[in-house]
Design a protein around this nucleic acid. Structure first.
Length: 1058
RNA sequence: GGGCCCGUAGCUUAGCUCGGUGGAGCGCACGGCUGAUAACCGUGAGGCCAUGAGUUCGAAUCUCAUCGGGCCCA
């Protein structure tokens, strides 16, 4: 049987209880099991990195996923929803290094790679467990028991298999490329791992002496002086104009400089030259015959041996000097220029950021110290034109924040560039939410796709499965563990991580031994294969065939360049098609000020703190409703409180009828909906219809991924339809003591609406929904599904939908609100009846609404009568004045509209209205002529009679006639008295059915007379079995109070009667 | 510097597709209700719709530019 709930909404208690319950009955697995064989829905969880703690953004992410999956499940989908964990990579290495007090790769090598890997694994697994608990606190249902983990062998094999596909399709390449390099981590890092931040660097202008020409220099600009020892060439734009300038310094010394013409003044100002003269101008393409000398030839032997020429490049911009320093070993564009012209790829910097022997006298120096030294050397040699500091955006390693450098190194690449066109055509087939995430943003990113450097020179990652023969150099890519075992002859299990896998040697055809290359994969390659790794492919083909590609994924906008991209790239390599069918790109979480949340700003919100204060359901409802999924989410605590209040109201609404139902032994299994149907009132049919409309709206929102609309609709239903309206309307019916069919009808309707509401909120507020369900459904029908999340999503029952009724009620509500407004204007509170309310309806619907729902209207407005005029017909007790409508006037009179409006306002309203009504038009004089006014161009504002106030409602203008008469005054004062006695009863903490003795003294003969008209009524309402009302009454009692009622003084004394 | 998104009341936002006197909620002030009561309801004040220009009789809405915020890139 349904149980009464007496407590306030206590989310912590409810959620704890529900979590325990879910665990006890194994709700999650039962629900998934229940849907086996249903419509397939393959969801891939974007694996969070195992940092150890979730933040608001990751919480939001999982809440979106959970809500969508719960909805899908209720809609009958059989789903795959393994949670995922991204567990390899530098961040964990860095954490472990910190814990062990390491600062470089050498420390790791001496500690032992095997030991280090074990620590990393341990660390990742521990963090995973911590985070799982945190996600579960949110109520997020994913397959937590069997998640996919990038450190598992089965997962590693998916990556290996994928690389083998790349090799077989000739998309894998090893070669020297310029990569982003972190000199601390001593590894290449992906473009997507570079984080741009402001940084101060030197900004120097350097003069390179032109060979065989006296005192003539080409001027370049750079922010990386340490790359000057690696300079090989200068690039100019073929079609820019360059000038040879005779420049004179403060000492009168003259020299000739080559600079882009437009930039001469700027450069000379920097070099503090006092005078100059343009000797000649030429195009960039005319400069290529020149060659120059390295200013550091005496320090770097290779520089002395090298030819330095001037080359053409289209990417040169007209900034700084228009001549660009080219160091092919230290820049991507530089590298391209070098390759094109067959220049040496000179890179005298080692992986640790120190110059190598090739750097001559600089050898051993760290590039961070080198800037100063190089600048000094250039200055000494007279090659430094100017030196300053610049603040600019510079790339940093996003894990350890070290400024990156560019190094030409041997790396492994996947030739994504070749797949670009296919990728673009694939993303057009994917359904993107919102549409622009794919058509604009992602497309833009893919168009700029470059080859993907997948190798890293680290330890904790998926080893790159390439074995190379130390004899003949032959290469072999291993695709699976089995293949490795077969080829190596090892029958025992092989741990696929470093350093174990490194020890596995393969026999080469040439008789030599093949050894694995040392690199590991970029972690983005790990997560890139998630969609098939989660299906345990390549170990299992069948599941893959059945499910792949994913039906749906959703991640933050940063993943455009990240997971959306890496998955697409890997999938194109492996299968030639996109790995997902639909993608929801969600926003970022910002703090209350709209700044991003970051540790350094100290504005990070921990989801756990929010849950402790408001509960997970409030947090969920907040993040889902506060903004569209793809917009950024501002965390506003006030809004969270607001949402929490809404849940509290839902709780109160749900709680309200329970005591009555329990008292009456209401058993929904014995009172069918059919049996109460004849007794349904209009408002009952209305709330049933509203509930159906809510389901339809939520369905529509879910189809469009506009979760915020779903949540807002739910909140509005709870607040407006249930709490503020339906509950108010039906309250008196629940107080009826007899076994009244009218009351049973209300119980049944409330019951159905509550159960439906619980189902509708289930995907979003799963705990509260479960709590309601267990009481309302499981306590009544023990055979019902064990959890609400196993029930079917409600199908819209068209037989309950009555759109006209909904519209009518909306109009009635608007009229009631307006009546409140008008009452306030005329100074008549609701407790006092008014003699009549007059409505001028705007249309037939408004007329019908009033006719249809007159009793509701009279009841809620406390009005003795509702009077309708004809549609748009003025109430005949009114005066009026003209109000022009610019919307109708503008299109007709265009430039004269202002004059017409002005003239209309001044016109005689009575005559205007009459003429328009009779003739359908009015000739209006305006400055400079006469115009024809049509009825639609002007409205009329009424002026009101005495004691009448008006207000606009959507149904039309209403007039509240607050004229008093004896009956109204009697009722008003009577209710004032009752209200005060009730107030005192409450103060005495009396039970609802306790009786009292009351003594009421009213110090006004007229008012006393009015109140005495209803003496019996007062006694009944206040449960007084002794009641004395008079001019001079002894009001002593348990509680005694003096009151001022509308200026009349009263004394009331009450005592509990036994 | 480029791409995409966002900017509406003190705060959080609807409206923008398809132009016609800008709607809510919170907070504030005032009032109401009193068998959901540590709850609930009404009214009011509060908006150069980020700024500037353009198109138009008319722009929060369309166009362009600028400023500010976010994500991504150079």
């Amino acid at each position: 049987m349904i149980e009464e709930i007496t407590n306030q909404y206590d989310p912590q208690k409810i959620e704890k209880k529900v979590h325990d319950f879910w665990a006890e009955v194994e709700a999650y697995s039962k629900v998934r099991e229940h849907r086996k064989g249903g419509k397939k829905f393959f969801f891939v969880d974007g694996p969070p990195y195992t940092t150890g703690h979730i933040h608001l953004g990751t919480a939001w992410n999982k809440i979106i996923k959970d809500s969508i999956l719960r909805y899908r499940s209720m809609c009958g989908h059989d789903m795959i929803d393994r949670a995922g964990w991204d567990m390899h990579g530098l961040p964990i290495e860095v954490k472990v290094e910190e814990a062990l007090g390491f600062t470089s790769k050498k420390d790791i090598e001496s500690y032992g790679v095997g030991n280090f890997i074990e620590k990393c694994k341990e660390f990742a697994l521990m963090q995973k467990d911590d985070m799982t608990g945190q996600f579960q606190m949110l109520g997020a249902w994913l397959d937590w028991k069997d998640p996919y983990m990038t450190l598992k062998d089965e997962y590693i094999e998916a990556a290996w298999w994928t690389l083998k596909q790349a090799q077989e399709k000739k998309l894998l390449e090893q070669g020297k490329r310029v990569v982003n390099w972190c000199p601390r981590c001593e590894t290449a890092i992906a473009d997507s791992e570079v984080e741009y931040e402001d940084r101060a660097d030197p900004s120097i202008f350097v003069k390179f002496k032109i060979k065989d020409v006296e005192d003539t220099f080409v001027v370049i600009w750079t922010t990386t002086p340490w790359t000057i020892p690696s300079n090989v060439a200068v690039a100019v734009h073929p079609s820019f104009e360059y000038a040879k300038v005779k420049a004179v310094d403060a000492d009168g010394k003259e020299e000739t400089l080559i600079i882009a013409s437009d930039l001469v003044e700027n450069v000379l100002r920097k070099g503090r030259y006092v005078d100059y003269e343009i000797l000649s101008t030429m195009l960039g393409e005319d400069l290529t015959s020149l060659s120059y000398e390295s200013p550091l030839a005496d320090k770097v032997p290779e520089q002395a041996a090298m030819e330095h020429g001037i080359y053409l490049a289209d990417y040169v911009t007209a900034e700084n000097t228009g001549c660009v320093h080219i160091a092919p070993g230290h820049g991507m564009d530089d590298f391209d220029v070098g390759k094109k012209h067959g220049l040496p790829i000179f890179c005298p910097v080692g992986s640790d950021g120190r110059y190598t022997e090739q750097a001559g006298e600089y050898a051993g120096m760290h590039i961070r110290e080198a800037n100063k030294v190089v600048i000094e050397d250039l200055n000494e040699r007279g090659n430094l034109l100017s030196e300053a500091t610049i603040n600019h955006r510079y790339g940093h390693c996003w894990r350890c924040k070290t400024p990156i450098i560019y190094l030409a190194t041997e790396q492994w690449f996947i030739k994504i560039g070749e797949l670009k066109e296919e990728m673009l055509s694939e993303i057009a087939k994917v359904k993107w939410y919102p549409e622009w995430a794919g058509s604009a943003r992602f497309k833009d990113w893919v168009e700029g796709a470059r080859d993907w450097c997948v190798s890293r020179q680290r330890y904790w990652g998926i080893p790159i499965p390439v074995w190379k023969c130390n004899n003949c150099g032959k290469m072999h890519v291993v695709g699976t563990k089995t293949e490795l075992q077969e080829m190596s002859g090892i029958t025992d299990d092989i741990e696929l991580h470093r350093p174990y896998v490194d020890e596995v040697l393969l026999d080469c055809e040439c008789g030599g031994k093949m050894k694995r290359v040392e690199d590991v994969f970029d972690v983005w390659f790990d997560s890139a294969v998630a969609s098939w790794a989660t299906l345990r492919f390549p170990q299992q083909q069948e599941e893959f065939d059945k499910w792949w590609p994913a039906d749906f994924i959703t991640e933050g906008q940063d993943q455009t360049r990240g997971w959306f991209y890496s998955q697409l790239g890997a999938s194109m390599v492996a299968f030639g098609k996109a790995p997902y069918k639909s993608v929801l790109m969600h926003g970022f979480t910002l703090d209350g000020e709209g700044r991003k949340m970051s540790k350094s700003l100290g504005n990070v919100i921990a989801p756990g703190d929010v849950i402790d204060e408001f509960g997970a359901d409030s947090l969920r409802s907040f993040v889902l409703s506060a903004s569209a999924p793809w917009d950024d989410l501002k965390f506003a605590k006030d809004e969270l409180k607001n949402i929490h209040r809404t849940l509290n109201i839902l709780w109160n609404v749900y709680r309200f009828p329970l005591p009555y139902m329990v008292l009456d032994n209401f058993d929904p299994s014995q009172v069918s909906f059919e049996s109460v149907k004849p007794y349904l009132r209009k408002e009952d049919r209305w709330i049933l219809s509203r509930a159906q409309s809510l389901v339809a709206l939520v369905d529509d929102a879910m189809a469009k991924c506009t979760l915020h609309r779903a949540l807002r609709a739910i909140n509005e239903f709870v607040l407006e339809d249930l709490s503020r309206w339906y509950i108010q309307l039906i309250r008196p019916r629940t107080w009826v003591e007899a076994d009244d069919p009218d009351k049973l009808a209300v119980y049944r309707v409330l019951y159905d609406v509550f159960v439906l509401t619980a189902k509708v909120i289930a995907p979003f507020m799963p705990h509260l929904a479960e709590e309601m369900y267990q009481n309302l459904v499981r306590n009544v029908y023990p055979d019902a599904p064990v959890t609400i999340h196993m029930t079917d999503w409600p199908l819209v029952d068209e037989s309950l939908v009555d759109k006209d009724l909904e519209t009518h009620m909306e109009m009635v509500r608007s009229i009631v609100e307006s009546a409140s407004n008008a009452r306030q204007k005329v100074g008549r509170k609701l407790r006092w009846p008014v003699s009549r309310i007059v409505l001028t309806p705007v249309n037939q619907q408004a007329t019908d609404a009033v006719t249809n729902l007159k009793s509701v209207l009279m009841d809620q407005t406390n009005s003795k009568d509702i009077v309708l005029t004809g549609i748009d017909e003025s109430w005949d007790e009114l005066g009026f004045e003209a109000n022009p409508d610019p919307g109708a006037i503008g299109p007709v009179f265009k430039g004269d509209a202002g004059k017409v409006i002005g003239a209309l306002k001044k016109a005689n309203a009575v005559q205007l209205k009459k003429t328009l009504a009779l003739e359908g038009q009015f000739e209006l004089e305006i400055p400079g002529g006469t115009v024809t006014i049509k009825p639609e161009m002007v409205n009329f504002i009424e002026t009101l009679p005495e004691m009448v106030a008006s207000a606009q409602s959507t149904a039309g203008i209403i007039y509240v006639d607050a004229t008093l008469n004896r009956e109204i005054e009697s009722e008003g004062f009577t209710r004032e008295v009752i209200r005060r006695v009730q107030d005192m009863r409450k103060e005495l903490n009396l039970a609802v059915d306790d009786s009292i003795r009351s003594h009421i003294q009213i110090n006004d003969e007229r008012v006393l007379d009015l109140v005495l008209d209803r003496e019996q009524f007062i006694a009944k309402e206040t449960r007084a079995n002794v009641q004395v009302i008079g001019l001079d009454v002894d009001t002593s009692g348990s509680l005694e109070k003096d009151w001022d009622v509308e200026g009349i003084s009263m004394s009331i004394g009450i005592t509990k009667a036994n």
